[in-house]
Amino acid sequence: MATPIQPAQPNRVGMSRNDYKGLPSTLCQGCGHNSIASQIIAACFELDIVPEEIMKFSGIGCSSKSPAYFLNRSFGFNGLHGRMPSLATGALFGDHRLRAIGVSGDGDTASIGMGQFKHMVRRNVPMLYLVENNGVYGLTKGQFSATAEVGLELKHQGANRYMPVDICMEALVSNATFVARSFAGDPKQVKELIKAGLAHRGIAVLDIVSPCVTFNNQVNAFHSYSWGKDHEAPLHEISFVPKLGEIMLEDAFEEGAVREVTLHDGSQVILKKLEKEYDPTDRWQALRMLEEAQRNNWMVTGLIYVDTSRPSLTDTYNLPDTALNRLGEADLRPGRDTLEGINASLA
């Protein structure tokens, strides 16, 4: 029996889910990146974000194409390979009230973009920086990326000789204020972490292992679906609760088994304890956990670290309440008398 079609409920800002959609994806069928795009759409819809109040950025690569597949009504800029962080850094000064979401890949971040990635992190650029990490170059048809594990074999490439870059570790040692890892095959966790990252005021690095179905999906490869499903070790179950609190979906947490982290806008991430005590506000513990995971070949997912005390880049610039890009000549051109004073001082 066919269920009658329910008209979609608009969200709190009067938008339907369609208002957050993008163009049809041109990525491969089954690509983990497509699933992430869907979760970005869902997260923004559920967070009641006005699409015009968020900007999208990306670099170059499969991942960097994906901002075209979500948030059609948002401004976006697909920049140069590895150099999206600088583009976003400058753009955020245009209207510092806007949110930003950057989508990068493992080549874009951990190879050519390592420098800009680290500097974006240390400046605490207010942006959700999402890495769609598949350990391989897809657009150029299957070369190793810097996150590929040592010993991985790829057609035409042979075995990888070099140690992989751990993006979360790099973020953490560069004093990131939000570090998380997820797995494209776990859409619920992906969505909760996207929401938490968007609510964080500062850099939110979210490394999502997103298998490449075409070039790197061997059963034994770290960045594959089957390996990920078998080896994923969530730190905790995550639930994101927006500031207004009405959409509290899960209330099954027991005292002592949960930890709440309050983000800048008052919303909360609730972490349910799994196997061990894990405190995501303890940087030293986060580093030790990542090291342990690497030794044991675990793919640990969840919110690895969060620090809500540091101001974001644009917060440190003492900007006016009005967006800089709305200022006009009266605000921007100093008066004639000031120039006369300068000329006099140089005479």
Binding site: M55, F77, G79, L80, R83, P85, S86, L87, A88, T89, G90, A91, L92, F93, G94, D95, G115, Q116, H119, T314, Y317, N318, L319, P320, D321, L324, N325, L327, D331, L332
Partner: peptide
């Protein structure tokens, strides 16, 4: 006492122009 400008020493010239283009795209001089 608020600044109607932002000046940022980048990590290199690649980033310096990247930031500048981001800002120009976002409507700033």
């Amino acid at each position: 006492g608020r600044n109607t400008y932002a000046i940022l020493q980048a990590e290199d010239e690649l980033a310096a122009i990247g930031m500048t283009i981001g800002a120009g795209w976002a409507g700033l001089r």
